[in-house]
Simulated scan of single mutants.
Amino acid sequence: MIQAKLDHMYDGRPDSELTREQIIDRNLHVVEAHFHNENPETVDDAVALYGNTISWEAPSRGVVMDDRKDILEAYRGIFRTLQYERTTALRRFATEDFVFDDQIGEVKVVGEEMHNLPYKPGTRVNCRLVHLFELKDGKIIREIAYELWREADSPIAVDRVPEGAHVEVYGG
């Protein structure tokens, strides 16, 4: 459903038929829709925003995938491993080819199904999470998640949060 709305935005036209401003607008909407659907109920919709080829990377955990089924299962493992308590959106901007997103996630580790996560269940952690998305024709073709994991309330769990940053608190 979200993909249909995105396709309708610019009638599914390729980047070559759009202005720079239209491409950037569409890219920002695609990434917003992707994040909106990164949850257990609608993760299939998040993955549907990938192009025919996809590279999904989490370098700090040594994860590189290019198969949609593997990526979908990795997301499901993340949902079974982390309980999100709060996110803080710091900044997001785009070009014709890339969207950069910088945020902080505050989570509790509740499982052990996330590839190479350096914390055990019961641990509260902060993650400075910086994404770089590469897009083409309104589809994500590369997603790189630079994860900086720190134990909550540790001396290194410090971030400069811009005034007015959007904070979302999750029940749980």
Rank of each mutant, 00 (worst) to 15 (best):
D45W: 04
D44W: 02
D15E: 09
T42R: 09
E106R: 12
R13D: 06
G164E: 11
E112A: 11
R91H: 13
R128P: 01
I140C: 08
Q22G: 06
H8V: 08
T87D: 11
I54V: 13
I24C: 08
P59E: 04
V109M: 04
E143L: 14
P59R: 04
L28D: 02
D101E: 12
K139I: 01
F98I: 08
M9L: 15
F133T: 02
R13P: 00
P155T: 03
S154H: 04
E96A: 12
V99E: 03
A74F: 13
V99Q: 01
R68P: 07
V47P: 04
Y84R: 13
E151H: 00
V161H: 10
A89Q: 08
G105P: 02
D66A: 09
P155E: 14
L49E: 04
V107Y: 02
P40V: 10
E134I: 03
E113F: 09
E17Q: 13
G111K: 05
V31S: 06
F35Q: 10
R26S: 03
F98G: 03
D11N: 14
V110D: 02
E96H: 03
G51Y: 03
T19Q: 06
C127Y: 02
V107N: 08
T87H: 05
M9F: 11
W56V: 11
R150V: 05
E85Q: 15
G171A: 14
H8Y: 13
E168P: 02
D15T: 05
F79V: 06
H166A: 15
D67T: 08
Q83C: 09
A4T: 12
V130G: 00
A46I: 01
E57Q: 15
T88V: 14
L117N: 00
R13H: 12
I144Q: 14
